[in-house]
Design a protein around this nucleic acid. Structure first.
Lengths: 343, 343
DNA sequence: GACAGATGCCAAATCGTTTTGGCAGCCCGT
DNA sequence: ACGGGCTGCCAAAACGATTTGGCATCTGTC
């Protein structure tokens, strides 16, 4: 089952392979008789000709392929949207995504990058499954690379990350807009951009509203449902309990729901809750459905490919720093936020 | 930044490209002086030689690349594990995964397959994000293809799917083993293998235990938390209410939890609940943590690659039917199942 | 009718591998 | 000293596209 090549098309159309190539690639500055063009296009169509990308790539030193290298694809459902965004944006540009994940194994990572280089990828998306600082492997200096949901100290690498601070501000403003003044922050204590950024956003929004920051309203614990449950309990068990909770993520919010239920507090009647991440599996299935702030995963994938394209097109624009893109985190309003109870 | 080629290695080692190729590929039946071999290996290492896969593929008509074509990568977090399994199994064989998703757009799918064929993939994994019957596109007949989490009426395509019936039996047996006799089944009414298979498993396990099937114990609704909530309510509001609930999936189980809470039923003290799918985001974060049956996503990815490899190695073994693999769904025991309450 | 410039096409080189079919030496037995 | 069989290597031809540098043929002008 031999595939048809350019020569088959040439033979069928009665011209040379050169001419077929010129026509199919719409080469500039080549004069082609309209009749011949028609003949060739028809022959190609009829034979179902598909150019062999390997041969093409060999000649052009271009594989039309991009490596997508991520630390852990599996741990979070977000992965899907990032990949989808990158994949669709890539496809629009005629690029295909070569997926690999390293499992945070540095040695494996080295081998995988070698594999990608063997395949002569046009560029690499170095992705993290949660927003963090990374140490970019040396090998990636030799190939166009964009950091996805990650940043490096080295400004030579473009990056695309979510705007955690704006997200935190948005969440807090949403609660303020409903009239809340005592707003608890259920957070965690990891040293990652999400933690510091969302806290900064929380404080910023309070300051805008002329509300002083009260450390007693911030409670940190593990960033899962258990942690959220405990942290929320600590805040709600106080005499002057907050009327609203901003939770670091949806999992912690899920725990806060349970704490509220135990205390007989109705959401959102007695207590408003807002989450972060928009993990639909949780936020849509909780009762009442959880208002939250979404991470722009799809958009991040799209932007990363756009950045990569830019680097590929303009390899070294003066060695200057590359674009560090920060993406907006939109509010997703559901049913867990309402005005505070009347006293 | 020219990459080093086989000729550079040859020059550095003072031999011909032919010899380098023979040595690096450990070609059989070629006599090589150990000293020369050493020399070449060192030169290759020193120069950081990486073979150009495009050139290699062109010569061998083999791209060492596999297409992963799925309908909707985004809708379910399971996707990650399938991809991970496939990716790791592929990497072990020196294969890279080319990811594409069609969004159930038949026209887009056609174009994407063409793209994969242009890239001369060695084979294609045609994946679905939930177990179902599919109509395989004609184009896939010309390239080794394996169906992943999907089946076709055409036995020419090997497939890998989960054993829904065994899963349903396993879940039900777990409840029976704890002493339950009145077991409700919270299910849905879609016409998919999961629905019929899990029901069959439920009935099978009951029969094994000598318990008659009671249609009043089966309640169908939408397959999300809302649906689970309603279906569970219907079962629990009866006079002779079941002591345990087998839920079609973890989302429905999440709804069942809420129904139980409303009725003042403690889990697992008053009511045992078991789910299906093992969506960790839910099952681990519910309180108490949800016992459930896992879909073997990772394993499915691995097996699909193994099957694909088999097809690639033995293109047409007599036109006979290909292997239809059905994978075991293991029990994941957490805290939501206990013996029934004493009357 | 001859010449210049356009027009329309093609032959051959190239990209970096693998693979086929040798070709020199060398050793050995006679 | 000579022929034969090993040993160890290499030259050249693929693979299927793109690109460079023409080369005929035609058209119009004088």
């Amino acid at each position: 089952m031999k595939r048809v090549g350019i020569k088959d098309v040439a033979a069928a159309a009665g011209v040379s392979a050169t001419t077929v190539s010129h026509i199919l690639n719409a080469v500039e500055g080549k004069r082609i008789n309209p009749d011949t063009r028609q003949l060739v296009l028809e022959a190609a169509e009829r034979l179902g000709y598909l150019p062999n990308n390997l041969a093409r790539g060999l000649r052009l030193s271009r594989s039309y392929t991009v490596g997508f290298l991520s630390d852990e694809i599996a741990t979070t459902p977000h992965a899907g949207q990032i990949i989808k965004g990158a994949q669709e944006a890539a496809a629009e540009r005629g690029l295909l995504l070569l997926m690999l994940n390293t499992g945070n194994d540095r040695e494996l990572e080295r081998k995988e990058i070698d594999l990608l280089l063997q395949h002569r990828v046009d560029g690499i998306l170095y992705a993290s499954m949660y927003h963090r600082m990374v140490e970019v492997p040396e090998q990636l200096r030799s190939v166009p690379t964009v950091l996805l949901d990650a940043r490096s100290d080295d400004p030579a690498f473009p990056s695309v990350v979510p705007d955690e601070e704006q997200g935190g501000r948005t969440a807090t403003r949403e609660l303020l807009a409903h009239g809340h003044r005592r707003i608890g922050f259920v957070t965690n204590s990891d040293d990652i951009p999400a933690t510091s950024g969302r806290l900064a956003g929380y404080r910023g929004a309070l300051a805008e509203a002329g509300i002083g920051f009260d450390a007693a309203l911030v409670s940190a614990d593990r960033s899962d449902a258990q942690g959220g449950y405990r942290a929320a309990h600590r805040l709600l068990d106080t005499a002057q309990r907050p009327t609203a909770l901003f939770c670091f993520n949806d999992r912690m919010a899920m725990g806060a729901y349970r704490a509220a239920a135990e205390l007989g507090l109705a959401i959102p009647g007695d207590l408003s809750v807002i989450g972060f991440d928009n993990q639909e599996l949780i936020s849509e299935n909780l009762f009442p459905a959880l208002s939250t702030v979404a991470l722009p995963h799809y958009e991040m994938g799209v932007r990363a490919i756009a950045q990569l394209q830019a680097v590929i097109d303009a390899p070294e624009p003066a060695g200057g720093p590359r674009s560090q893109e920060v993406l907006h985190c939109p509010l997703v309003s559901r049913d867990s936020v309402a005005p505070p109870p009347r006293l």
